[in-house]
């Protein structure tokens, strides 16, 4: 049996990944999250300035996602919602809190401290890199 033959056999055996269904559920769940965020934001604007209300809304979602992660509920929700919970700020919060939880037995320094950004680290690294690149571009454009 050669490699070509094997890969031909393997290509015949696939499972349906239900990509369209997953995308639809992600769209709906992220939409619902956004609507609830907007409602919360509108309510908070009664008591706070527009800027502060926005920050508080984001903080609320980060807090809730971390709490749900700790309670072991977030991953079950994310199994269905997929990108709907992964792409918003809740996904970032979950990446941090789940890594921290997983490593808590290794202690504060070698466990939580060094592993907390294991998954979210690339978001921060490339966030900074792209911020530098785009700020340079903006700087040059303004010079012209």
């Amino acid at each position: 049996m050669n490699q070509k033959e094997l890969h031909e056999i393997s290509s015949r055996h696939q499972v349906n990944d239900h990509k369209a269904r997953k995308a639809l559920i992600a769209f709906i769940s992220a939409g619902m999250l956004a609507v609830s965020g907007q409602l919360l934001n509108d309510w908070l604007m009664i008591y706070f300035s527009k800027e502060n209300a926005g920050i508080l809304t984001i903080l609320f979602f980060i807090f809730i996602a971390a709490i749900l992660t700790g309670m072991g509920i977030y991953d079950k929700l994310a199994k269905y919602a997929g990108a709907g919970l992964f792409i918003p700020i809740t996904g970032f919060s979950n990446a941090l809190s789940s890594s921290a939880l997983e490593c808590k037995r290794e202690g504060l320094i070698y466990g939580i401290g060094s592993n907390m950004f294991k998954l979210a680290g690339s978001v921060i690294t490339y966030g900074i890199v792209s911020a530098i690149i785009f700020s340079l571009i903006t700087y040059w454009v303004r010079m012209l």
């Binding site: 696939q14 499972v15 349906n16 990944d17 239900h18 997953k22 992660t69 700790g70 072991g72 977030y74 991953d75 929700l77 994310a78 199994k79 997929g82 990108a83 919970l85 992964f86 996904g91 979950n94 990446a95 809190s97 789940s98 890594s99 939880l101 997983e102 998954l119």
Partner: peptide, 17 residues
Amino acid sequence: ERQFRYPNEYGVQKKEC
């Protein structure tokens, strides 16, 4: 899961395969 994949509480959709 921790050894080979992601933290247990990480909300990621696994591949069907």
